[in-house]
């Protein structure tokens, strides 16, 4: 199954071009041009990794991150930062972002961070599945509660 990426950046041409590059590398990529649009898309679909610009008009990166984590706690978030916004990205990591990237970023660095974020999400989901299976085997009726 392809890894599902949500790319959020108000710079439309940047988001479109980067998403096209990721698609050529076999990712399933959706773009959103604002924090609000990202939240709408997250309600409709499960993404493995969200790449989120820190500085956007309207709902900024940190507020968007908080909402994403409320909505889809397992979705991993990579913060995209520019000059002078590294502190914001660090704040983002304190509230649940997986990592951050400086813009413009090298493709191999981006791919490595996406893959690492995906791995973490996959392992997290595996642990949840395992816990659920154990619960089911010890107490089958608990699933009907």
């Amino acid at each position: 199954m392809k890894k599902r990426i949500l790319l959020v950046d108000d710079e439309k041409e940047f988001a479109d071009t980067l998403s096209e590059r990721l698609r050529t590398r076999d990712f399933d990529v959706t773009t959103a041009y604002s924090g609000d649009e990202a939240l709408e898309k997250l309600k409709e679909y499960n993404y493995d990794v969200t790449i989120l610009d820190v500085q956007m008009p309207g709902l900024n990166g940190i507020d968007a991150l908080r909402e994403i984590k409320k909505l889809k706690p397992l979705t991993e978030v990579l913060m995209l930062t520019g000059h002078g916004t590294v502190e914001t990205a660090i704040e983002g990591m304190k509230i649940g972002a997986y990592d951050f990237l400086m813009k413009p970023c090298e493709m191999d660095v981006l791919l490595s961070k996406i893959n690492n974020a995906y791995e973490r999400k996959y392992k997290h989901e595996e642990r949840i599945r395992k816990a659920f299976t154990e619960k089911l085997s010890t107490s089958p009726m608990s699933v009907f509660k």
Binding site: E11, E13, F14, T17, L18, E20, R21, G82, P104, M107
Partner: peptide, 17 residues
């Protein structure tokens, strides 16, 4: 500088594509 950086990021991704 943020604006110029965004322009550079678009050029980088376009040439990368």
């Amino acid at each position: 500088t943020h604006e110029i950086n965004n322009v550079l990021a678009i050029i980088k991704e376009s040439s990368g594509l």
